[in-house]
Design a protein around this nucleic acid. Structure first.
Lengths: 204, 204
DNA sequence: ACGACTCGATACATCTGTGTATCGAGTCGA
DNA sequence: TCGACTCGATACACAGATGTATCGAGTCGT
């Protein structure tokens, strides 16, 4: 047997820096975070950092890409396992806080990254495309559910998706400010409330 | 006649620093903004800044307080002028981008400040209280409107307010990322869509 | 108009962060 | 096992920000 590694793999180092950056970004904000803090949190010096990334900005971009890729993969997988909308929503509920993507479990970081993108024009199309895809996905699922329940809704899937994704992100933001009045699954509660409203149209 | 002022009033200086800070915060983020940038943007040196504020943090807090006070006063005034919900919403629509509060016209700054509060625990109660007040106000207005249209809604004013305020802030956030797909008055469009859904229950 | 006070400008000491160049221990292939 | 290469640590030069102490022109009251 060979003796244990002393120096971590390059990938291992990158991953540790990544994870550390997530924490530091969430805690101090992307703008206020320093390379020193990130490297230290990962148990390295700045030397290791600059050996892996060109700078804070590049890392932030890499982090965003990584998050979007994971998020999309996650959604696809979930949708494949639960093609029926009811099961899909239930799966979402089971899923709260269970993901291992650090961005998924750290709403503060998610919003922080959105803000970072907002003030970095060349990054906006990336996240913008993701936003539209989310709206469209959510809108289709919701419209299907509604149709299946025998209601003829006076709004299209696009509008529906826009509203629902806005509720999700809005509540995410509100939870950061006032966790006591905004539960982690507040979005799912809101979904149910909206469902009740829509179903009221059927009973009429 | 006395000759024109050379040195601005203290209040004038404070106000100029305030306005400049709003721009700098919006452009660079609260975390990344520097006292030097703020002072320069206001046409002063750092000396003037430190003569008026203890530091960046204190200014951020003052700005938040100012915004909340203005926002509440604005809402009260609008509500006094338009006690009927329909007129109130119309007034909101006329109002888009017409306010002089820099925070009201700079959504990026609004979100930035929310995030700043989110990571400053001792500030959260302030904004948290404001959030709850908004939910309650909006929820009451909405519930009244709905009731007036003869619909018996299966959700309370509290839930309604939570959802509506979330939609508003969510769309604000989305507009930062993808302005093309999210108009400035997207929230009012969403309101109308939700109104249509609710009214569908009446026709049954 | 003059004296006391105010308040922004200037200068200074200090600290923190950045990016790069270099070094040397760790790792891997032959 | 030995040599070439890799990659994180260290050191350095530099840039920029912070906060304070001091100065002096501007302002106001009498």
């Amino acid at each position: 047997m060979s003796r244990a590694r002393v120096r971590p793999t390059r990938d291992e180092t990158r991953r540790r820096l990544f994870r550390a950056a997530a924490e530091v970004f969430a805690h101090h904000g992307v703008g206020a975070a320093t390379v020193e803090q990130i490297a230290a949190a990962a148990g390295f010096t700045r030397g290791a950092f600059y050996s892996n990334f060109a700078g804070k900005q590049e890392l932030a971009v890499a982090m965003l890409d990584d998050h979007l890729a994971r998020s999309q993969a996650h959604n696809r997988a979930l949708l494949a396992r639960h093609p029926d909308p009811a099961g899909f929503v239930q799966a979402l509920r089971d899923d709260v806080g269970r993901e291992d993507d650090p961005l998924h479990t750290t709403p503060l970081l998610q919003v922080e990254l959105m803000l970072y993108v907002a003030r970095t024009p060349e990054l906006r199309p990336v996240l913008g495309a993701h936003l539209r895809a989310m709206r469209s996905l959510v809108g289709e699922i919701a419209a299907t559910t509604v149709r299946a329940s025998g209601v003829d809704l006076p709004v299209g899937p696009a509008e529906l998706g826009t509203i629902l994704v806005a509720v999700e992100d809005g509540l995410r933001l509100h939870r950061l400010i006032d966790p006591d009045s905004t539960a982690p699954d507040a979005f799912l509660d809101a979904l149910e409330a909206l469902e009740r409203i829509v179903l009221a149209a059927r009973r009429g």
